[in-house]
Amino acid sequence: MKGHVFRPLWVTLGLVGLIFIARYFIVPPDFGIGERGYMYGWYRKGNEEEWKAFKIKHNTMQYCKDCHPDQSKKIKASKHAKVQCENCHGPSVDHPEKPQKLNINRDRELCLRCHAYLPYRPARYAELPTGAITLKMQEPDQHNPGIECVTCHSVHDASFK
């Protein structure tokens, strides 16, 4: 047989071989079929660990109460017991190192998220251990517009100053 007949075959085989060699270097060793099979689990296993290592920013009241026991006890006894510190104080991340001071949101708009009157907003609040209460709602345009709520109201014990 003449050599030129087989030449395209060798070239093709060589290219396929090159693809396999390149694939060996490009595809990570942990890439393959996971627990959910080929259709849903064809992935790089190491990525799961990367997601697990993602930084937590909201450490919840469990974290706050160690250094701020007075404030956390106060709010736990109030009608705001189920409101997380970080909802108004912002994510604690690595506080007290970074950030050293949290940026407290005292805006009227923040309070209104729950306390603005909407005709379709459920008025019954049953999340407190002491039993169901009525959710306090105000017409924002009629109830001292323009003044920050914290001027008269105390947030930590959900009452007046």
Binding site: G41, N47, E48
Partner: peptide
Amino acid sequence: GATYQTADGIVL
């Protein structure tokens, strides 16, 4: 193969 489901059902 950039998105997948973990054994506990979360799509990442």
